[in-house]
Amino acid sequence: MTDQGQMPPFAAHIKRTTGETAVDLQLRLRGTGEANLDFPVPFLRHMLHLFAVHGRFDLTIQATGDVDVDDHHLVEDIGLSLGQALYQALGSKRGIRRYGERHTPMDETLARAVVDLSGRPAFVLQAAFPAQRVGSFPTELVAEFFKSFAYDGRFALHLAVLYGDNTHHMIEALFKAAAAALREAVSADGDAVPSTKGVLA
């Protein structure tokens, strides 16, 4: 059980290996935005680079998977591993803000992300992407990635594309908004666990 008297480590290292994927992921929540990403899903690499920069997270991922079948398993397992890293890095959650919210424009698109590091997983995405793919990346995997991230990170993540026309812009705005909202949620705010229950688990 987590010692609620300890401050969070704000860093974690996750290794996950299955018959479909292998993921080695390191996350530092209070970093400089450095990203070292090596896995065979180019569009997700691009999005997670933006995620690291706009969240000011240091993120290293080395991963392989059965992308000859499709990208689904690897995208899902990277999201899952990132969620586990977030949960581990937050530890007791003592001294964090807990909540974060950001509206982010990307040219004609506006996206919103709202985060509660509650210890209770929830995920909502309101978005209608005009295109089924961006390059070779299926846009239905955006929801799969964020759902895995939220559920294994044990936090509430509400995402919405308020308006827009370009699918790439919509997805990019979502990743940037999520990163900025998380940056706010993990930022320093006193030295207590931000809950009337005294615990966020």
Score class of each variant (00 low, 15 high):
R154P: 00
R30K: 14
G153Y: 12
H54D: 13
P121A: 09
D70L: 05
V134K: 00
A111L: 08
R97M: 05
F145Y: 15
Q6A: 13
Q4P: 02
R56S: 10
D38A: 14
T109L: 01
S195H: 07
H169M: 11
H103I: 12
Y87D: 15
V69K: 13
A89C: 04
P42Q: 07
L182I: 13
R45A: 03
L110A: 07
A113S: 15
A35D: 09
E172D: 10
Q26A: 12
L182E: 00
A128D: 12
L125H: 00
Q62S: 15
Q6I: 09
Q126K: 09
R102I: 07
L80R: 13
R30F: 01
Y87N: 14
A11H: 13
I78W: 08
D70W: 12
R154G: 01
Q4W: 07
I61M: 04
V115W: 08
A35P: 13
T167A: 01
M7A: 14
K197G: 08
A111M: 11
R94E: 04
S148W: 01
M47E: 05
A111P: 11
T64P: 00
T139R: 04
G79H: 08
L200Y: 10
Y163G: 02
G198H: 08
F129I: 02
H13S: 13
K176W: 02
G198T: 13
Q84N: 09
A185F: 03
A150I: 12
A180E: 12
V134D: 00
I61P: 11
H46Y: 14
T104V: 15
L37R: 09
D71H: 15
Y163I: 00
I14P: 01
H158C: 01
I96W: 08
L174T: 11
Q84W: 09
H49C: 05
L159N: 02
R97S: 15
F43L: 08
A160T: 15
S195K: 06
V134P: 01
L157T: 06
N36C: 07
A11R: 13
P40Q: 06
E101M: 11
L200R: 14
Y87V: 03
F129Q: 10
G5R: 13
D66R: 06
T17P: 00
F145L: 04
